[in-house]
Design a binder for these strands. Structure first.
Lengths: 230, 230
DNA sequence: AATGGAAATAACGTATGCATTGATGTGTAC
DNA sequence: GTACACATCAATGCATACGTTATTTCCATT
């Protein structure tokens, strides 16, 4: 027999719950579900092709992740990211990611990790030279993900991933408004050097400055452009 | 008319979902559900008096909170806290709570907050004098909760609450094994003074030392007593 | 015309039913 | 006696059905 043992659908291996979660999250992050708008469980279920049960599951999960609010009879409210959210999140990232840098430096990078981070940094440098801001942001995201992975603290990975997800839309919206991220790109290279040298204190200090600058720049940008709800 | 508008039950106001979550969480934290043991959704549902749906919801939530693991056909596995978990969590708390102390000092305490924190500190001092370790731990917990609330960062509140929940069982188990928490109690009083004076840097430094000492003491204690799974 | 109330509607929260799938136990063959 | 395969069983994951409740609309009354 072929490998299709189920007559219903073709590609639902990870389960309907994960499918609903991934679909809704993706729709929020790329803007197909608009901030401050509401969507009923039933309509989301129809769009995704599952029943209300996994949609409800996904809604509760996304609520605890800070992306939506489930309101009793009005569906899922897509939460916009406010200036206050940005402040909160950058305060946390400024505490958490320098810890990751410190731990990663103490622990040392594996050959694969070093290669991957160097790769991501190079992609950022190249993307910046080509003025490809989207590619730059992707490299930046990957670098930070690799950094916290290298720290080897699973809870730290989970927490930072959550907060980076929450600011994703604001970062994308401000990409073309912000000045070219020259210093930010250099910071990554410097940080990587510290990690390779095992300079924990240096890594921490560099990254504190990096995150503080990024947070301040973003919040100022949002205030300047009156972008209070993304 | 009286305030009972619903003829069905007497105390299910917060909903069955919350009831299941609270019940299971409480049973885990006080040990009625044993670490490394598994419990089927159906039996939990029966004990609690709800259907499987809210139990399943609670299970998923507790899984993302790090208290259980849902295993496909074997029910909810109650996760023990390992030495590695303690290390991870204290690394995070050592980064997060000093941030809270710093922010709270900058922001200043309201009269109620100051009173509540002083109250909690006094209770700890009194409990220590009376050798009532359980009361001491309760005061300690409340102090730390008040501290992060005073920082005014909602995500910080949520994150630290989660991690404190995860170490709860280990803290309780080691209460009677650890030396009398003299220094720890003094630390709280000193920290509170810094907060009242608005000394952000002092508050941060005191609390870093406080958390580092606590984390080191606990992990050493667990290693000493071979308590790898609580 | 405006306001208040009651009925209808619609959405969620919970319960239940069903099918899929891993675990378990038994029987047979080597 | 052991090992492998097949059949039975049980528990989950998902779908669906039901009851509760907020919201909305419509009508009557002022």
């Amino acid at each position: 027999m072929t490998d299709e043992k189920n007559p219903s659908a073709g590609e639902k291996n990870p389960g309907a719950g994960a499918k609903a979660y991934d679909a809704i999250k993706a729709m929020i992050l790329d803007g197909r579900l608009k901030p401050s708008a509401s969507y009923l469980e039933a309509e989301l279920a129809e769009w995704i092709g599952v029943s209300r049960t996994p949609v409800r599951e996904a809604g509760l999960r996304l609520e605890r992740e800070g992306l939506v609010k489930v309101r009793p009879r009005r569906g899922l409210l897509i939460l916009p990211v406010s200036a206050e959210d940005m402040t909160e999140i950058y305060q946390l990232l400024t505490a958490l990611e320098p810890l990751a840098a410190e731990l990663a430096a103490e622990r040392g990078l594996s050959a694969e990790q070093a290669k991957a981070m160097d790769n991501a940094t190079t992609r950022m440098e190249r993307a910046l030279a080509e003025d490809n801001l989207v590619a730059w942001a992707e490299g930046d995201d990957e670098f930070h993900a690799l950094l916290v992975e290298a720290a080897g603290n699973k809870r730290l990975i989970e927490a930072t991933a959550r907060y980076r997800t929450q600011v994703h839309r604001a970062r994308m919206a401000t990409l073309s408004l912000r000045p070219r991220p020259e210093q930010s790109t250099v910071d990554h290279r410097v940080l990587l050097d510290c990690l390779l040298k095992g300079d924990a204190k240096g890594a921490r200090d560099v990254h504190v400055a990096h995150r503080q600058a990024a947070g301040q720049m973003l919040t100022e940008l949002l205030a300047q452009h009156r972008l209070d709800n993304l």
